[in-house]
Design a protein around this nucleic acid. Structure first.
Length: 457
RNA sequence: GGCACCGUGGCGGAGUGGCUACGCAGCGGCCUGCAAAGCCGUGUACACCGGUUCGAUUCCGGUCGGUGCCUCCA
């Protein structure tokens, strides 16, 4: 179990991971609002936190990863109204898409995936506590959080409350009801056209965006849990508000450490639904496959922006091919001891702010040396490489594809080519190789004879 | 305007007060009948200007350029 340090947004510094209970780590990562299909930008935190959990488990921690879905919200109402469907039906449909799309990443599910709509008792109870402590107030069925009740408001995103110039600006009703423009809604009274609402002591309505996460995170992990995460576009206001709510209701910090992922960019601009420059996750999976997508995400540091470009994608695919290649030449079993420096460095890099990019550098060095040795006729065991790749959920690349071995026609052609080569009929041999290539087979001539390998894009 | 961050070789992308990141692509070579795969070799990269220092891509200041957030956002 290595010492693990993670960049904490609140302090701006690397913080050592110090679990409340030694060996147990709770992570809450904000998931998407389900009003349409998710895009690759939404997928980055899903992948990063899934891989980070794998690393923590590798290090011997018991990890509880919680990733919520926001299934009641203005955008869902608006989209459902446009499509003429019930908002609950839309949220259920898109929630199912979200699960199916992320399942295709083959990273498992988070341990808990709470929904706002099924967490109402906890949400309402938390709001009641805030009202009782005068950190929130009711106004015509709405409930607002009193931002200035939290003396530390702004500490997460390093903003000065007195320099913030407005609140939820363009909502005239909110502006009228708020005692301070900075205040934000914990609860919104039900409005005409909204088809879901819950009863509370202050009236019928539905939760604001931020309160659900404070309530669900606490319900799942308690307060002061180890890591709260999400995309860095959530730092303000979402996470700032979550932190403020829990501070005021519990006199405790919601999370010990805040871990934020960088944005995916398309031609220098953040990929986002509102800009419209999005690549849906399911299309990306269709085009480049989960292996290349996971490797692409791992090839840059999680806090850096990630460039969604053809060159980057092509490079990830090349990396996948290279890993499949080495899987063909390694043997099951222990790896050479003198290569352990690279695998140790790989895990040390992950322990240092989960630096997957640096870790991959060491992994590739391991691969190059292993190739060098197998080319020299040595037998190299795959244990260590498998262990490294398992943390990145890419160890499957070392296993031969079982479902599509060469068919009889291909094998017959290969035999015919062997005969042609034995007769030094190179023209015929090359003709057959071209025919095999047309069927998607690459011929590999080696010391132990020729073999057929699936040609990969 | 405020806050946060970035500018590294053709491209992607780590990192460091002096010593090879790594990968992709290219070029040369080894291997091969020719290939494929793999291996070897190959690029005086650190936006610009000052400062600190024996020495700065790395620290400090400034300039220029870019990105994110500033109550829809992962």
């Amino acid at each position: 179990m290595r010492t693990i340090r993670i960049h904490d947004t609140a302090s701006g510094e690397l913080q050592e991971l110090r679990p409340r209970v030694p060996g147990a780590v709770g992570i809450y990562a904000c998931g998407p609002t389900v009003y349409n299909r998710i895009h690759v930008g939404n997928a980055r935190p899903f992948v990063v936190f899934a891989l980070f959990k794998r690393f923590l488990v590798h290090e011997g921690y018991a990890v509880t990863l919680v990733a919520n879905l926001t299934d009641v919200n203005d955008k869902i109402y608006a989209a459902a109204t446009r499509q003429g469907v019930a908002s609950t039906a839309l949220a259920e449909e898109m929630g199912a898409h979200y699960r199916a799309d992320t399942d295709r990443l083959q990273l498992g599910r988070p341990d808990l995936e709470p929904l706002a709509t099924t967490s109402m008792p906890a949400i309402v109870a938390l709001i009641e506590d805030l009202i009782a402590r005068d950190a929130a107030y009711v106004a015509e069925g709405d409930v607002y959080f009193r931002v200035r009740a939290d003396t530390r408001y702004g500490s997460l995103s390093r903003r000065d409350v007195d320099r913030m110039d407005q609140g939820e600006g363009d909502d005239p009703v909110g502006l009228r009801l708020k005692q301070d423009p900075l205040d934000f809604a914990l609860w919104k009274a039900t409005k005409p056209g909204e088809d879901t609402a819950w009863d509370t002591p202050w009236g019928r309505g539905r939760p604001g965006w931020h309160i659900e996460c404070s309530a669900m995170a606490e319900e799942a992990l308690g307060v002061g849990f180890e890591i709260h995460g999400g995309g860095n576009d959530l730092v303000f206001p979402h996470h700032e508000n979550e932190a403020a709510q829990t501070r005021c209701a519990r006199d405790a910090e919601l999370a010990a450490l805040w871990m934020h992922t960088g944005m995916i960019e398309l031609r220098g601009a953040k990929m986002s639904k509102s800009v419209g420059n999005i690549t849906p996750l399911h299309e990306a999976l269709d085009e480049i496959g989960r292996d290349a997508l996971v490797l692409l995400f791992a090839s840059s540091h999680y806090r850096q922006p990630l460039n969604w470009a053809d060159d980057s994608i092509a490079q990830a695919r090349a990396g996948v091919r290279r890993l499949r290649e080495i899987g063909r030449v390694l043997e099951p079993g222990p790896s050479p001891d003198d290569l352990q420096g690279e695998s140790d460095a790989f895990f040390a890099a992950l322990a240092d702010d989960f630096n997957t990019a640096r870790a991959l550098g060491h992994l590739w060095s391991w691969v190059r040396e292993a190739n060098r040795r197998t080319a020299a006729g040595e037998t190299v065991g795959d244990d260590r490489l498998r262990e490294m790749l398992a943390v990145l959920a890419l160890d499957g690349l070392l296993d031969p594809a079982t479902e599509d071995g060469p068919d009889d026609r291909a094998l017959a052609l290969l035999r015919e080519r062997g005969a042609a080569r034995a007769a030094k009929d190179w023209a015929r041999a090359d003709e057959i190789r071209d025919a095999l290539a047309a069927d998607g087979w690459t011929v590999r001539d080696g010391a132990s004879g020729a073999e057929l390998v699936r040609t990969e894009g």
